[in-house]
Design a protein around this nucleic acid. Structure first.
Length: 824
RNA sequence: GCCCUGGUGGCGGAAUCGGUAGACGCGUCGGACUUAAAAUCCGGUUGGAGUUAAAUCCAGUGCCAGUUCAAGUCUGGCCCAGGGCACCA
C-alpha cells in the first residue's frame, strides 16, 4: 500500500472497476427485502452544483448503508430533461434543444460518476426521449378517458417572458417561478388535470405519511386549503335571479348588510341597473387591467362600486344592496360574498370606507363589543338573530345552515382552495399533448398505437410571441382518427411537472415497451422508501406526484396510495451565509473539488458539518479539514498495512488495553448505526469516525511492538473502521479493503454488528451530585447495586467535607450513573 | 395576520429516557520537529472570580415564571430569526 494518499488515482481506478464488474446493478429478483432510495432527478442544466452533490451524496450513503444491511437496493438516476432552458439555449446559440440537452446529460453523467455514486445506470430515465414521453402521452390518454384530463376556457396565469401559461403552483407572489417576471391573466382554452377531484384524499392521506416533515405536510395542507361552511342563495329583488354565496360563518347570517360579487362574476351585467352601468363597467375594466401584483400591493385599501340592485335576507326579510369589489375572488367559492362588517375584518374595512350599515349579531357576554372600532371575530353568543338568540355561535353554524337546508335556500358545503392543474404549455420542448381537433368530430385523442406523437424537427426557434412548434410545416396537419378527414394537431406541450410526476415509477421497469411499467414490478419496488430532495418542491412536484399515484391507482395500474413513504428535505448549500448563485459569485465548482481533493473528500465534507435537513455553509477550510482527515486515515492504514489482515480473528481473552479498544470499536458501530437509522444524522456519524480514528492512534501511541494479539485487535479496529466509513469514503475504503486482503468489494460486505455487552466502557463513572450540582466523579464497577453506589458516594472525601454538619434529607440513586445527595 | 421550523462558545454544531452542557470539527493561541517553511504531532480555548501556577468557587443553553432531588430537554407566557401561506369569505 502506498504511503501517500492519491485520491484522484484510486478514484479513477475503482470507478472503472465498478463499472466493468457491474457492482451496483440491481436485480429485480432477489431473496432480500427491497429498499428504494431516490434523489429528486435533476434538470440537465449543464453542470452539477453543490446542491446536487449534497442531495446525491445523502441518498448514496443511505443506499449503500441499506445494501450492507441486507437489502436489495434500488438506487437509480435520470433526467428531468424537458423544459424552457433548452429552448432558450436553442434560440441563443442556435443549438437544437435535444442536442443541447443530451450534451448536458453526458457531461453531468460524467460528473456523477466521478462522485462515485452507486447508481444502476441500466435504469437511467430521460424524460425527453420518445421511449419515455410516449408513456407520458399514454398516461395522459388514460387520464383523459377517465375524465381527469379536460379542456376548458379559463382565466389563466400568463408569463410573457416565458411565452406560456403557468399552473397556480408555479406563480410565486404573482411572479413566474422560473423567470421572476410579473404574471398576467389571460382568458384561454387550456388543458387541465382534475387534481381537485383528489383534494380530500390528498389532504387526508397526509396523515399516512409519518415519514414526512410537518413543514411539508402543513404547506400541502395549506395549499389544499379545506374549509367547511355553507352555501346560501339570496333572491334578487329587482330581477328574477339568485346570488349564491359561500361562507364559513353561517352563524353571522343575520348580520348581513350588503353583498359583494367579484368583478368577473358571471351574472354581474344582469345585476347592474342602467344608472350604475357606467361606473360598474369602469371598475371592471380597471380590475381586468390590474395584475396580481397590483391587486396585492394595494391590499387593505379596498375599493368597489354598488350595482344598484338588492337582495333579500331570507332569515330576516331585510333588504340589502349588491356591490362589486375586487376583494371578492371569482375563482373561489361562488364568486360572491355575504358581508357582515361586524364580524369580518375585510367587510369591516369596506363598510367603514363606504359608510355601509353594521349590525352586531355575535357577542362575548363577558366583554361585549359594539364593533364600532373593529370587527369581533372571536367566538360568542348570538344576538339580534331571532330564534337563534342565546345560542353559542359554534352551534349556531350548524343550526342556521340546517334551517337553510330545510327551507330550500342553502346547503352545507366543503370548499377547497386547490385549483385544477393547468398542464398546457405554449412551448416546443415538452411532451406533445396527444390529441387532434377535427371540425366534424371535435376533440379526438390520438389512438394509443400511434404513440408517441413525436416532436417535429422542422421548426424555427427564432420566432417571438408564439411557440416554435407552430412553425413546423408538418406537425399540426393530420387526419382525424375518427372520420379520417382533415384535422389539426394540438400544438401545446405538457408542463414538465407531468413528466416528473411518474418518473420514479419508470425506474422499476425502465425498458418496458408495452406499458409504462409492469404492474407487478411497480408494486414490488414502490413506494419509494426514502426520497431525498429540496424543500422547494414541497408543493409542486410532491403534490403532483401524489395526485398521479392516486389517479393511476384508480386506473388500476398500481396498488398503493402514496408514492413516497419517507421524505428527507435537505437544506440549501450556502457560502458565506448566502445561497450559492452565479450572480453573487459565491459558487464552488464540484469539478475543482474533485480535482484538488477527490470525490471522497467532497462526500465527507458535504455530510460533515450540518444535519441533512439544515442549511449547510460551505467553507474552504472545512474541505481542507476533511482532506486532512482522510490523509490521517490513510496514514493509519498504510503505516500498519503489514500488521493488518482482514482475516485475523480476535482472541477471546484480551489485555485491559486491548479490551478497551475493542469496546471503543463496538461503541462506534452502535453509535454510527443508530445515528444513520435516526434521521440520517451524518454529521455525528462523521464525528464518530474521527473519534474512532483518534482512539486507534491513542492506543497505538502506547505500543512499541505489536504482538499477535495486538495485531488482531488493530486489524479488527481498522477493518471495522473502513467498513463503517465505506458508504461515505467509497474509494478510499475500497482500496484499503483490497490492500488488506479483503475479498470482493467492501460495498458488498455486511454492515458490522455490535455486541451490547462490549458497546460500553468496562467501568462506569459515577456522578456524585449534592443538591443537583456535580461535586465528584468516581470510577465504579457497574455491577454495584443501588445501596452500594450510595455507600460509595457517601464515602467520597469530597462529599464528607461538603456534608459536614449538614443533614442529608434524601439520596437519589440512578443505577449505573449518578447519586444525588440532598442536604440542608 | 395565520401556519411551520429554529434560538446552545468566536463559528458549524453535539447532548436516546429529564441525570457530567459544549462531543467532533473549524478558527485561534502556545509548544515539538525543521536551517526555514509546508506537512505532521502534542497541549490550551464558554464567561467571570481566584492563584506565581494550580486547586477551587460562581454564572451560563433567547427572556420571564413554574414542575422536579435534578431542566438545553417538561409546562405556561413572552421575545427574536428563517421559511411557507395570505382579501380563500
Amino acid at each position: 500500500m502506498k504511503n501517500a494518499y492519491f485520491p484522484q488515482e484510486i478514484e479513477k481506478k475503482w470507478q472503472k472497476i465498478w463499472e466493468e464488474n457491474g457492482t451496483f446493478k440491481t436485480p429485480n429478483e432477489s431473496d432480500k427485502p427491497k429498499y428504494y432510495a431516490l434523489s429528486m432527478l435533476p434538470y440537465p442544466s449543464g453542470k452539477l452544483h453543490m446542491g446536487h452533490v449534497r442531495n446525491y451524496t445523502i441518498t448514496d450513503v443511505i443506499a449503500r448503508f441499506k445494501k450492507m444491511n441486507g437489502f436489495n437496493v434500488l438506487h437509480p438516476m435520470g433526467w428531468d430533461s424537458f423544459g424552457l432552458p433548452a429552448e432558450n439555449a436553442a434560440m441563443k446559440h442556435g443549438a437544437e434543444p435535444e442536442k443541447w440537452t443530451l450534451e448536458n446529460i453526458a457531461y453531468m453523467t460524467k460528473q456523477l460518476k466521478m462522485l462515485g455514486l452507486s447508481y444502476d445506470w441500466d435504469r437511467e430515465v430521460t424524460t425527453c426521449l420518445p421511449d419515455y414521453y410516449k408513456w407520458t402521452q399514454w398516461l395522459f390518454l388514460q387520464l383523459y378517458k377517465k375524465g381527469l384530463a379536460y379542456k376548458k376556457d379559463a382565466s389563466v396565469n400568463w408569463c410573457n417572458e416565458c411565452g406560456t401559461v403557468l399552473a397556480n403552483e408555479q406563480v410565486i407572489d404573482g411572479k413566474c417561478w422560473r423567470c421572476d417576471s410579473v404574471v398576467e391573466k389571460k382568458y384561454l382554452s387550456q388543458w387541465f388535470f382534475k387534481i381537485t377531484e383528489y383534494a380530500e384524499e390528498l389532504l387526508k392521506d397526509l396523515d399516512k405519511l409519518p415519514g414526512w416533515g410537518d413543514n411539508v405536510k402543513t404547506m400541502q395542507a395549506n395549499w389544499i386549503g379545506k374549509s367547511e361552511g355553507a352555501i346560501f342563495r339570496f333572491k334578487v329583488v329587482e330581477k328574477d335571479l339568485e346570488v349564491p354565496v359561500y361562507t364559513t360563518r353561517p352563524d353571522t347570517v343575520h348580520g348581513i348588510t350588503y353583498l359583494v360579487v367579484a368583478p368577473e362574476y358571471k351574472d354581474i351585467e344582469a345585476l347592474t341597473t342602467p344608472e350604475n352601468k357606467e361606473a360598474v363597467e369602469a371598475y371592471r375594466a380597471n380590475a381586468r387591467k390590474m395584475t396580481e401584483i397590483e391587486r396585492l400591493s394595494n391590499d387593505r385599501v379596498k375599493t368597489g362600486v354598488p350595482l344598484g340592485t338588492h337582495c333579500i335576507n331570507p332569515f330576516t326579510g331585510e333588504k340589502f344592496p349588491l356591490w362589486t369589489a375586487d376583494y371578492a375572488l371569482a375563482e373561489y367559492g361562488t364568486g360572491a360574498v355575504m358581508a357582515v362588517p361586524t364580524h369580518d375584518e375585510r367587510d369591516f374595512d369596506f363598510a367603514k370606507k363606504y359608510n355601509l350599515p353594521m349590525k352586531v349579531v355575535i357577542q362575548n357576554p363577558e366583554n361585549p363589543s359594539d364593533c364600532k372600532e373593529k370587527a369581533y371575530t372571536e367566538e360568542g353568543i348570538l344576538v339580534n338573530s331571532n330564534e337563534f338568540n342565546g345560542m353559542k355561535n359554534t352551534e349556531a353554524k350548524k343550526a342556521i345552515t340546517q334551517k337553510a337546508v330545510d327551507e330550500g335556500f342553502g346547503e352545507f358545503k366543503t370548499q377547497y382552495r386547490l385549483r385544477d392543474w393547468l398542464i398546457s404549455r405554449q412551448r416546443y420542448w415538452g411532451a406533445p399533448i396527444p390529441v387532434v381537433y377535427c371540425e366534424k368530430c371535435g376533440i379526438q385523442p390520438v389512438p394509443e398505437d400511434q404513440l408517441p406523437v413525436l416532436l417535429p424537427k422542422d421548426v424555427d426557434f427564432s420566432v417571438v410571441g408564439k411557440s416554435p412548434i407552430t412553425t413546423s410545416k408538418t406537425f399540426a396537419e393530420t387526419t382525424c382518427p375518427c372520420c379520417g378527414g382533415k384535422a389539426r394537431r394540438e400544438t401545446d406541450t405538457m408542463d414538465t411537472f407531468v413528466c416528473s410526476s411518474w418518473y420514479y415509477m419508470r425506474y422499476a421497469d425502465p425498458k418496458n415497451d408495452k406499458m409504462p411499467f409492469d404492474k407487478d414490478l411497480i408494486n414490488h419496488w414502490l413506494p419509494v422508501d426514502q426520497y431525498v430532495g429540496g424543500i422547494e418542491h414541497a408543493i409542486l412536484h410532491l403534490l403532483y406526484s401524489r395526485f398521479f399515484t392516486k389517479a393511476l391507482r384508480d386506473l388500476g395500474l398500481l396498488d398503493f396510495d402514496e408514492p413516497f413513504k419517507n421524505l428527507l428535505t435537505q437544506g440549501m448549500v450556502l457560502k458565506d451565509g448566502a445561497k450559492m448563485s452565479k450572480s453573487k459569485g459565491n459558487t464552488v465548482d464540484p469539478d475543482e473539488i474533485f480535482e484538488n481533493y477527490g470525490a471522497d473528500t467532497a462526500r465527507l465534507f458535504i455530510l460533515s458539518d450540518s444535519p441533512p435537513a439544515r442549511d449547510f455553509d460551505w467553507s474552504d477550510a472545512g474541505v481542507e479539514g476533511c482532506y486532512k482527515f482522510l490523509n490521517r486515515v490513510w496514514r493509519l492504514i498504510s503505516s500498519n498495512a503489514e500488521n493488518i489482515k482482514v482475516a485475523y480473528a480476535l482472541p477471546t481473552t484480551l489485555t485491559k488495553e486491548n479490551d478497551d479498544l475493542v469496546r471503543v470499536v463496538h461503541m462506534a458501530i452502535k453509535g454510527i448505526t443508530n445515528d444513520i437509522s435516526n434521521d440520517f444524522q451524518f454529521n455525528t456519524v462523521i464525528s464518530k469516525y474521527r473519534e474512532l480514528v483518534n482512539a486507534i492512534y491513542d492506543w497505538q501511541g502506547k505500543k512499541s511492538d505489536l504482538n499477535d494479539e495486538d495485531k488482531a485487535v488493530l486489524s479488527f479496529a481498522i477493518v471495522t473502521l473502513i467498513k463503517l466509513m465505506s458508504p461515505v469514503a467509497v474509494h478510499l475504503c475500497e482500496e484499503a479493503w483490497t490492500e488488506l486482503g479483503g475479498e470482493g468489494s467492501i460495498h458488498a460486505q455486511d454492515w458490522p454488528v455490535w455486541d451490547e455487552n462490549l458497546a460500553k466502557a468496562s467501568s462506569i463513572t459515577l456522578i456524585v451530585q449534592i443538591n443537583g450540582k456535580v461535586k465528584d466523579k468516581i470510577e465504579a464497577d457497574e455491577a454495584l447495586n443501588q445501596d452500594e453506589l450510595k455507600e460509595l458516594a457517601l464515602s467520597s472525601p469530597k462529599v464528607k467535607e461538603l456534608t459536614e454538619g449538614k443533614t442529608i434529607v434524601k439520596t437519589i440513586v440512578v443505577p449505573k450513573k449518578l447519586v444525588n445527595i440532598v442536604v440542608k
